[in-house]
Amino acid sequence: MTCKCGHVDDSVKQEDLQAAIEKFKAVKGGLIPLLQEAQDIYGYLPKEVMQQISSGLSIPFSKTFGVVTFYAQFHLKPRGRNIIRMCQGTACHVRGASRVFDAVSEDLGVGINGTTGDLRFTLETVACLGACGLAPAMMVNDDTHGRLTPEKSVVTLKQYE
């Protein structure tokens, strides 16, 4: 949806958003899938987008905000180009995930849910990636990296621009 040149054309996004609102207007329980599409379009959920969605679906803004802040996948702030999701699952925990997390956190200089100043990385945790055979594991965007050590995890991140 976004071009790589850094130029942001909001009118295209706006068109996509309006189309999504139209699509979900008559769908029962359409708020959450609509928010998911809107987040795909914008990368996060700006206030104005939530307002448009609320009025489009005739749902109070307070409710939309309540739904957005309930679910971990919705974001109110812009996120980094690369999303790191460190697994906190049981298997990863017992195989040293917290040391891996600390190493990455220190390397990037951000804590949980933090985004680096250059918008290169956002560091998140996830309850379990379901990749327990690879514990400790993390996902960067759609790639899963497993059998991590503190050193290996930091090196792995270098390939993401």
Partner: peptide, 21 residues
């Protein structure tokens, strides 16, 4: 036409709040 406030956030951080907290 009101519903100015609703539950926001979750768990221990749950709070009754207007939009955008």
């Amino acid at each position: 036409g009101r519903a100015v406030i609703d539950y926001a956030f979750r768990g221990f951080r749950t709070k009754v709040a207007p939009p955008m907290n």
